Computed example of a mutant assay.
Amino acid sequence: MPGATEQKIIDAAVRLFAAQGYDATSVQEIVAAAEVTKGALYHYFRAKDDLLFEIYRLLITSQSADMDRIIGLGLPAAETVREILVSLVVSTAERVDETAVFVRELQRLGEERMAEFRAERRRYHETFLAVIEKGQADGEFSSVVPADTVVRIAFGVVNQLPMWYRPDGAKPPAVLAREIADFVLAGLR
Rank of each mutant, 00 (worst) to 15 (best):
M1C: 03
G3W: 06
Q7G: 09
V14A: 12
F17K: 10
F17M: 07
A18N: 09
Q20K: 15
D23C: 09
A24I: 05
Q28P: 04
Q28A: 14
V31D: 02
A33C: 03
E35N: 11
E35F: 00
A40N: 09
F45A: 01
F45R: 04
R46F: 11
L52Q: 06
L52C: 02
R57W: 12
L58C: 06
I60K: 09
T61G: 13
S62P: 03
A65V: 01
A65H: 08
I70S: 00
P76I: 04
A77W: 00
A78H: 11
E83Y: 02
I84W: 01
V86G: 09
S87V: 07
S87F: 06
L88D: 14
S91W: 00
S91R: 08
E94I: 04
R95S: 15
T99G: 10
V101A: 10
F102M: 14
F102R: 02
F102Q: 10
V103H: 13
R104D: 04
E105V: 06
E105A: 01
L106M: 13
L109K: 12
G110K: 01
M114L: 15
E116I: 04
A119R: 10
R123I: 05
A130S: 15
I132N: 00
Q136D: 05
A137K: 07
D138I: 03
D138M: 03
S142R: 05
S142I: 00
S143M: 02
P146C: 14
D148L: 07
I153G: 01
G156D: 08
N159V: 00
M163D: 14
W164H: 11
R166C: 06
P172R: 15
A177T: 01
A177W: 03
F183T: 08
L188Y: 00
